[in-house]
Design a protein around this nucleic acid. Structure first.
Lengths: 143, 143
DNA sequence: CTCCCTAGTTAGCTTGGCTAAGCAAACTAT
DNA sequence: ATAGTTTGCTTAGCCAAGCTAACTAGGGAG
């Protein structure tokens, strides 16, 4: 029982630090996109959700509505996303990525994933399997 | 060969998204520290490195020197870190955390790890082992 | 001593975070 | 209906955090 707790704390610690290092590493390529970290992250949510409201995006980014509003101003000005007011409830604004937004994000994603995949490819098959299994478990953990 | 590549891309993709979700989740507790994300992250580097120069910190954070300089101004003003010029090369500034800085960081870390550990603890032992193994592999991957 | 390089800081800008206040659309209730 | 409330977003105004360019000061090479 006490053992269970200290084990999970140890694992949590390792995973936490691994996640930090992983993201620090892959995000070094993001500058090539020409977008700031905040905009790239918001664009990513919009692209993968296909359609989100301002409020949903704010919550996903862990940021307040006014922050998102200005961030989207920038993305819209750059032609990466579109605002569309919902006809059935004219208070809500839906966001969708433009073709150019999707394209830009896909390139950024490939740079990140490519870096990581190249290093994973050098691992023995067994370790690759462990990583894949762990990723699935973590996915479930997020509820 | 082609299979190897597409496998590692698939795994990279899963891990990347798992890392993002993991950090988004645990960082929700950071507001309780009273520090901004940038300051908390810088403090964490200083505490774990024990002693770093401004340049080292800038590189670790993926940010330019002037940004770090002002960030450290804030941390110093809050009594969380100390600047000390190196006597053997008076151009370089070493940073160390104060007791209060270390304490604040430790609390923030516990909030993050505690959240994660609690969820890991609910997993079957086998899945916990997989996570632990994966974390070790990822650690090695960062070189 | 002169020149240049390196480490940090300062200045001035833009972007990204916040709260408070505003506004219009959609509810609720009398 | 219409008065009041709630909801979703925007605007305004503040401060922190990012950048580049320009400066200061210490070290090293000649």
């Amino acid at each position: 029982m006490t053992q269970d707790t200290s084990d999970s704390v140890r694992i949590a610690d390792l995973l936490h630090s691994a996640a930090i290092h992983l993201l620090r590493r892959v995000s070094r390529h993001d500058a090539a996109s020409g977008l700031s970290a905040a905009r790239l992250s918001a664009l990513s949510v919009i692209v993968y959700a296909d359609r989100v409201t301002m409020s949903e995006l704010a919550q996903a980014e862990g940021v307040r509505l006014p922050t998102i509003s200005r961030l989207v101003d920038g993305l819209e000005r750059d032609g990466l996303v579109l605002r569309q007011t919902d006809p059935s409830d004219r208070r809500v604004v839906h966001l969708t990525a433009t073709e150019s937004g999707r394209h830009l994000l896909e390139e950024a994603r490939q740079r990140r994933i490519g870096d990581l995949a190249a290093r994973i490819e050098c691992l023995p098959a067994e370790e690759q399997a462990t990583l894949a299994a762990a990723a699935e478990i973590l996915d479930g953990l997020g509820k």
